[in-house]
């Protein structure tokens, strides 16, 4: 029983680690899409940021420098997205797709040119990545207090700072989007941009700010992948996480709290699939992990089709704003 409990706790612990980049990207998506800009480029921005973080950390030895450059890289791609879809009123999906494909090619190209390791960056040492933070007495409490102890030791303690930051980002996103006047304008610009325009506020400027906030969060997610969760950049290391985050955001109906829960659920499925790999369960037999991994996508399709509640996107999403003359 105690063993099963520990297995469960370790799965929850893995869930938090897997869910962190999803949470950051889902919050990024909320900022962008609430302002009316579809962002399927979460994937590409995260990939470029992961590459930037690992490269800079490898060269300078500092994960913080890596994080800084990762954020700048992601912000630059956000500006490109904004330039295409806000300034030039281009198609937001096409722009996002272009960024994803560009990132996929550019990371490998630059990786080979700089490090000559087939697209990977050098393996990062202990001081070159974000280490796990042990909370006080974690080992003692974990060993001496039954049931609750392992929760403290495995789930609460032992995470790196970016995991905490991801959870903080949810609270901050909620506060900014729903409790400030900036957030009110942000939501208005995604629902009824004419109203914002007639109030004398620039729609373009609001949308650019939203897109940049998204870039900031995606940059942190990228740095997490390559310098906290992993120890270096690997080709295509985002592996669809940007799209899962997008699905989680839709699943959470464009709200931070529910999106967080969706990220945790999708993360849990991922962690569970990793644990169940090749394991034969009593009565059920061997479960196909491939199908567990497909569940987030299937659930999102089912939700979007209105079979479980409704998911209504912001009204002006995907529509470039043209001032009436």
């Amino acid at each position: 029983m105690a063993d099963l409990w520990l297995q469960f706790i370790l799965t929850i612990d893995a869930t938090l680690r897997v869910a962190t980049p999803l949470i950051l990207c889902a919050m990024a998506g909320i900022f962008s899409e609430r302002a009316g800009i579809i962002d399927i480029s979460l994937e590409g921005k995260m990939l470029m940021a992961a590459f930037a973080a690992a490269s800079v950390a490898a060269v300078t030895g500092s994960p913080w420098a890596g994080l800084g450059v990762a954020i700048l890289t992601s912000l630059a791609l956000s500006l490109l997205h904004g330039f295409a879809c806000i300034t030039h009123k281009g198609n937001q999906v096409i722009s996002g797709l272009a960024i994803n494909i560009l990132a996929s090619g550019l990371t490998v190209t630059l990786g080979i040119a700089i490090f000559a390791r087939g697209g990977q960056t050098p393996l990062l040492g202990k001081g070159e990545r974000f280490g796990s933070l042990q909370l006080p007495f974690a080992d003692w409490i974990g060993a001496h207090i039954p049931f609750i102890g392992p929760i403290y030791k495995e789930i609460i303690s032992g995470h790196n700072i970016l995991v905490w930051l991801a959870f903080a980002a949810v609270a901050i996103t909620y506060y900014v989007v729903f409790k400030t006047s900036f957030g009110l304008r942000l939501r208005a610009v995604g629902e009824k941009p004419e109203a914002i325009d007639s109030a004398g506020i620039s729609v373009s400027s609001m949308r650019f700010q939203a897109v940049l906030l998204a870039g900031l969060l995606t940059g942190i997610a990228g740095a997490y992948l390559s310098t906290a969760h992993g120890a270096g950049f690997i080709r295509e290391m985002t592996a669809g996480k940007g799209y899962i985050a997008l699905a989680a955001m839709i699943f959470g109906k464009w709200r931070p709290g529910p999106a967080l829960l969706a990220c945790l659920m999708f993360g849990f499925l991922d962690a569970l699939a990793a644990r169940l790999q090749g394991v034969s369960l009593p009565y059920i037999g061997e479960v196909s992990t491939d199908l567990i991994l497909a569940l987030p996508y299937i659930m999102t399709v089912v939700l979007l089709a209105g079979f479980i509640g409704t998911a209504t996107p912001p009204k002006a999403i995907g529509v470039p704003y043209v001032k009436e003359r």
């Binding site: 295409a84 281009g90 198609n91 960024i99 560009l102 990132a103 090619g105 190209t109 000559a116």
Partner: peptide, 23 residues
């Protein structure tokens, strides 16, 4: 220093310029 992945990058740029920034 340059490999076929370069083509993926070029493809991304083509989608950017002839799609999102078409006009």
């Amino acid at each position: 220093t340059i490999t076929r992945e370069m083509v993926v990058m070029i493809q991304g740029l083509i989608i950017l310029f002839s799609g999102a920034l078409a006009y």
